[in-house]
Computed example of a mutant assay.
Amino acid sequence: MTKIRVFVVDDSAVVRQVTSEALSKAPDIEVIGTASDPLFALEKMTKAWPDVIVLDVEMPRMDGISFLKRIMKEHPTPTVICSSLTEQGAQTTLDALSAGAVEIITKPKSGVGDFLRDASSDLVRAVRAAARANLHRLARANAVPLPPSPKLTADAVLAARQAGRVAMPKTTDRVVAIGTSTGGTQALQAILTALPAVCPGMVVVQHMPEKFTAQFAQRLNQICAVEVREAKAGDRVIHGLVLIAPGGRHMMLKRNGAQYVVDVIDGPLVNRHRPSVDVLFRSVAQAAGQNALGIIMTGMGDDGARGLKEMRDAGAETVAEDESTCVVFGMPMEAIRLGAAKKILPLGAMASEIEHFL
Rank of each mutant, 00 (worst) to 15 (best):
K47R: 10
L97F: 03
E43D: 14
S66K: 14
Q88D: 14
A101M: 12
V102C: 12
G113E: 09
S36C: 02
C82Y: 03
P108G: 09
C82Q: 06
M72W: 03
S84C: 08
R125Y: 08
Q91E: 14
Q91P: 00
K44T: 13
D122F: 02
M72N: 00
D51K: 02
L94Q: 04
M59L: 11
P108H: 15
L39M: 15
T77I: 03
P76M: 12
P50L: 08
I71F: 00
S66D: 15
F67L: 11
R117M: 12
A130M: 03
K69Y: 04
C82S: 13
R128M: 06
V52W: 05
P60W: 09
V80A: 01
F67V: 07
M59V: 12
P50G: 10
T93C: 03
P76I: 05
S83E: 08
E87K: 15
A129F: 00
K107T: 04
M72V: 02
A119Y: 05
E43L: 11
F67S: 01
F40L: 13
A119N: 09
V80W: 02
F115D: 14
P108K: 12
D95Y: 05
Q91K: 11
A101R: 03
D95G: 13
I53F: 06
Q91C: 06
A119M: 13
P78G: 08
V124I: 14
M45L: 10
M45V: 09
M72A: 03
S121N: 06
S83A: 15
D118W: 04
C82M: 12
D114G: 14
P78A: 14
S36D: 07
D56F: 01
R61G: 09
L55W: 00
R70I: 09
F40H: 10
A48Q: 14
S66E: 13
R125L: 10
D51T: 10
I65L: 12
K47S: 04
A90Q: 10
A48P: 02
W49N: 15
K69D: 02
P108R: 10
P108D: 10
K44P: 03
T77Y: 00
D37Q: 11
V124L: 00
W49R: 09
D118H: 12
T46W: 05
